[in-house]
Nucleic acid binder design. Structure first.
Lengths: 222, 222
DNA sequence: TCTGTTTCTAAAGATGTTGTCAAGGGGGAA
DNA sequence: TTCCCCCTTGACAACATCTTTAGAAACAGA
């Protein structure tokens, strides 16, 4: 059950929203004490915050900034149409969303659903490359394909990363050597071949025996 | 040639990045005067901005917001791993991307490429030649026509590239030999003929048997 | 220090590309 | 038509390039 924090000064709208959200299967969390919004937010750790920008006493924007720092929940801004929409949009660029009053109920619900899905969807591994049925996690040093995975050593990782960064294109041996041993000229050209063999071996283990093609005289290609 | 603006205070990294980007065919645009980043951005209209969040003097976040308003270029944030990754992610969700230091070069390049492709919208980079129903990808080393494709070897690729670069014109055998074996005088003239035959063979396979015309005593012509 | 892993060097083996050769084809000029 | 010369073509051998194996050296973790 996901908690949604409602920050809204009009009590009529408060209740309406609370009811609506509850009917939709969320747990509404209506803020009544506006002097310590932050504290409540930290305490309750809501999954989403519905923030009316036109609050009394406090500038909605600074509140927003503070909320962002305090909790990781996405924020949907509610604003009246005539307010500075551009600014709100700027604020909301962070994956959140905004909606102008008066809003229609289905739209609001759709927004909530979208934002929740986006944010709950796990953190999006920040450093993976994907290409041709291969997934390469650079931080973990692991390739996976067909459900199988294999651990790579440093060199193998670099080679594969380099190839995947230029998927489909021919990457010359020279480029690969540069990428691996930047400018160590006296590295035996053959060393690359050896590493290539090992990498291919691991790719074969996970079911992709011919993932890396060699283009004689030119280089390698995914 | 796409311009990439590099906003980074460490001069060592600056140079490294500049070199790297140049090698990849981009035009790096290193910012040295940090007091008027905005002005420079507006003036130069880069295609992409690489922004290190940990800048001196100015909060990276506010700078980002300002950049967003000033230019339409996508921004890739560079941040150290321990910084508030959540916030950066929030910032970058607007179609841009972020990357944590220390990053690997292939990853950075892949990100740049992805973001540029996404934002520019247009498809392939200019490493392809087209002429008379033929499409030749230099980086992939394949010709395609009528939906069929064929892989070329180094020599075949060179010949075809040379011809396509002068579509319709007559290219002398001497020119082709120069292009293939620069100044190796003692190459048998016949060798070119053989390679030509082989190239024609592959073109025939993809449905263009008479793509290359021979002009007796003068040379070849597409 | 020991142990296991990873990387490099060396050398032999495999393979595709390329150049050479030799045997035709077929324009084009007489 | 005839002949010559340029070009084409197929076969083949040579070569360069790549692969693979094995063992030594370097490295990292216990």
């Amino acid at each position: 059950m996901q908690k949604i924090m409602v920050i809204e000064d009009d009590t009529a709208i408060q209740e309406e929203l609370a009811l609506l959200l509850e009917n939709e299967g969320y747990t509404p969390l209506v803020v009544t004490n506006f002097t310590d919004i932050l504290g409540q937010a930290v305490l309750e750790r809501p999954d989403l915050i519905l923030l009316d920008i036109g609050l009394p006493r406090r500038d909605g924007f600074s509140l927003c900034a503070a909320l962002r720092k305090a909790v990781s929940a996405p924020i949907i801004f509610v604003t009246s149409r005539d307010a500075g929409v551009d600014e709100v949009r700027a604020l909301s660029l962070g994956g959140d969303d905004y909606i102008t009053k008066p809003y229609s109920v289905p739209v609001l619900l759709a927004r909530i659903k979208a934002v929740l899905r986006r944010s709950s969807g796990e953190p999006e591994p920040a450093d993976t490359l994907e290409a041709g049925g291969l997934r390469l996690s650079l931080t973990k040093g692991v390739v996976s394909a067909n459900g199988k995975t294999a651990e790579l050593t440093r060199n193998e990782l670099q080679i594969l990363a380099c190839l995947m960064a230029h998927t489909g294109q021919i990457v010359s041996r020279a480029d690969l050597i540069d990428a691996l041993w930047d400018n160590q000229i006296y590295i035996d050209d053959n060393t690359l071949s050896v590493n290539m063999t090992r990498l291919r071996g691991k790719l074969t283990e996970i079911g992709l025996p011919d993932a890396i093609k060699t283009r004689r005289g030119m280089g390698y290609q995914l």
